[in-house]
Structure formats: structure tokens, C-alpha cells
């Protein structure tokens, strides 16, 4: 970093103004999150001055039944939505990659719509849809989360399909044909040849679906009932009415969870793989 060789014309990153620009952008992106995390340990009701280290807001957050329930709901929904969207998304990718069929362009276009349509419109659509078909709302846990989970799967699986399809492009079809020549059935060829090739994209797709689901506020806001509060919806109502340090603590836990998940993804894929997935 501090070597004194002359700066070559294309080494833009070594120019001072470029470095400060990147540094300031990173500060802009991270300062709010870091301040929030630091102040979750602050022994003061108001968020401004540092009064000393404490874990009491973590204790409060973990003893706040509503908050814990919301967190459990969120994780359950994210888990279920990830599994189903992984299956549907992978199948959709294989379908579009492998087969020629009538109205293919239409199917392909429609499948990318949940990504493009604004969240608010999708949320509204699910609100009307579930009201119209009288979807039962008084089911026992976890069935009462089904409406939210269905909504999440709808906007998650096209992302999975996109990631898996990108990976399929690099698949050598001769491998599959060789397997079949050697006596493998259609299913065996799929399970033992295609699936292993897809594994990195399935991991990336699963993580993407999990974060998208965990992150979603708007669509959940329209599909959740009084008994099916998720973490973002809970935080929203807490932020709306009063900013409590408990929110800081709970948010810090979620940020750490995100960072851990990202690093798991890194171990599977390497940094390069993660950036390619986007």
C-alpha cells in the first residue's frame, strides 16, 4: 500500500482522490450500521451519548416474547420458502434450458415478472388474492404462516431460477449423454451428473432466497395478520411508535446472522463466485 513506485496511468485505484472517494462511499454505507451495532451495547435509554457497556438490551430483546416470536416466524418462513423456491426454481431453470415447447417466450417472460413488478403491487395482489379465496387465517402454527410463505416463494423462486440457469450454461451435455449410454436412467443421470454440477448455484440460490425472504417487509406487511408478525414487520411497528434500544440489539443479532451467512457462502463459492451470482 505504501510502496513508492510511480503510479501507472491505469492504476486509478492508487490515486488519492479515487481512494478517498471509495473510502467515503464505504463510510457512507457502513457508518450507520456500525454506529447502530456499537450503541446496542450502550447503557442509556436515549441513543446519543455513550454511558458505558451493557448487555441489558440484549437480555430485554431476548425476553421480549413478541420480538422473539417474530424472529422465529421470520426464520421459519425463510427456511420453508428457501426449500420450496430452490426446488421450483431449479426445475424452472432446467425446463427453460432443456426443452423447446410452445409459448416458451411467454413462460420465460412471465417468470421474470415477479422480479420486476414493484413489491407494493405484489403485496397488494396477495392481499386481495388471499381475501378473495378466503384463505384460512386461524390455523395453528406454523400453518398460519402459509400465506406469507406462499407470497415469499413467488418472488424468490425466479431469482433461484436465474442463478441456476446461469450455471447450466456451462454444463457439458455430453456428460449426461455418456451417463445415459452407460445405462443410467433419466433420473439417475439427473441425480448423479446434472445435480452435482449445479451444486454451487443451488447454494448461491438458496442463500439468495433466504436473505430475500428474511429481508422482505412490504409484501409481508400486506399478507401478515395480527398473529403472524415477522421480524421486519415487528421492527417497523417498534420504529414507528418509539425507538427503543431493544431494536438496536435485535438488529445487531440479525446483521451478525447476515454476515455469518455471507461468509458461509464465501467458503462454498469463493468471493468471485458470490459476485458472479449477482
Amino acid at each position: 500500500m505504501f510502496n513508492r513506485t510511480a503510479i501507472a496511468p491505469l492504476e486509478y485505484t492508487r490515486k488519492l482522490w479515487m481512494r478517498s472517494w471509495v473510502g467515503l462511499t464505504m463510510l457512507f454505507l457502513y457508518a450507520p450500521l456500525i454506529v447502530l451495532m456499537i450503541f446496542s451495547f450502550n447503557d442509556s435509554k436515549r441513543n446519543v451519548v455513550w454511558k458505558g457497556f451493557t448487555l441489558k438490551y440484549y437480555e430485554k430483546a431476548l425476553n421480549n416474547d413478541g420480538l422473539v416470536e417474530a424472529m422465529v416466524n421470520s426464520l421459519t418462513i425463510a427456511f420453508l420458502a428457501t426449500i420450496v423456491s430452490l426446488v421450483i426454481g431449479a426445475l424452472a431453470a432446467v425446463m427453460l434450458w432443456r426443452f423447446r415447447f410452445p409459448f416458451k417466450g411467454l413462460v420465460e417472460g412471465t417468470m421474470s415478472l415477479p422480479i420486476i413488478v414493484p413489491e407494493i403491487c405484489l403485496g397488494v395482489a396477495f392481499l386481495i388474492f388471499f381475501a378473495k379465496i378466503d384463505w384460512p387465517t386461524d390455523l395453528p402454527w406454523p400453518l398460519n404462516l402459509s400465506a406469507i410463505t406462499i407470497a415469499h416463494i413467488t418472488f424468490c423462486f425466479p431469482f433461484v431460477a436465474m442463478v441456476v440457469r446461469a450455471r447450466l450454461a456451462s454444463f457439458n451435455k455430453e456428460e449426461e449423454e455418456a451417463a445415459k449410454d452407460l445405462g443410467a436412467t433419466e433420473w439417475q443421470a439427473f441425480r448423479d451428473v446434472l445435480l452435482p454440477h449445479l451444486k454451487p448455484s443451488l447454494v448461491a440460490g438458496a442463500l439468495l432466497a433466504f436473505t430475500l425472504s428474511l429481508d422482505d417487509f412490504v409484501i409481508t406487511f400486506f399478507t401478515s395478520g395480527p398473529d403472524t408478525i415477522t421480524f421486519p414487520v415487528k421492527v417497523y411497528s417498534m420504529v414507528r411508535f418509539s425507538v427503543t434500544p431493544e431494536v438496536n440489539a435485535a438488529s445487531t443479532i440479525l446483521i451478525i446472522l447476515t454476515v455469518v451467512l455471507t461468509f458461509i457462502a464465501l467458503r462454498y463459492q469463493g468471493v468471485k463466485g458470490i459476485s458472479d451470482a449477482h
Binding site: 464505504m26 454505507l29 457502513y30 450507520p32 450500521l33 454506529v35 447502530l36 436473505t211 428474511l214 429481508d215 417487509f217 421486519p232 421492527v235 417497523y236 420504529v239 425507538v243 431494536v247 438488529s251 440479525l254 446483521i255 447476515t258 454476515v259 451467512l261 455471507t262 464465501l266 468471493v271 458470490i274 459476485s275 449477482h278
Partner: peptide, 17 residues
């Protein structure tokens, strides 16, 4: 990764922060 990590972080938490 530095650019992407905030993108993975919850939108509501970022707005609140």
C-alpha cells in the same frame, strides 16, 4: 464484498440505522 454486504443486510434495519 464491501459493496455487497449492505445489500444483503435487512432493508428495514439499514433504514432504521
Amino acid at each position: 464484498l464491501g459493496i455487497m454486504l449492505p445489500f444483503w443486510t435487512n432493508l428495514l434495519i439499514r433504514t432504521y440505522a
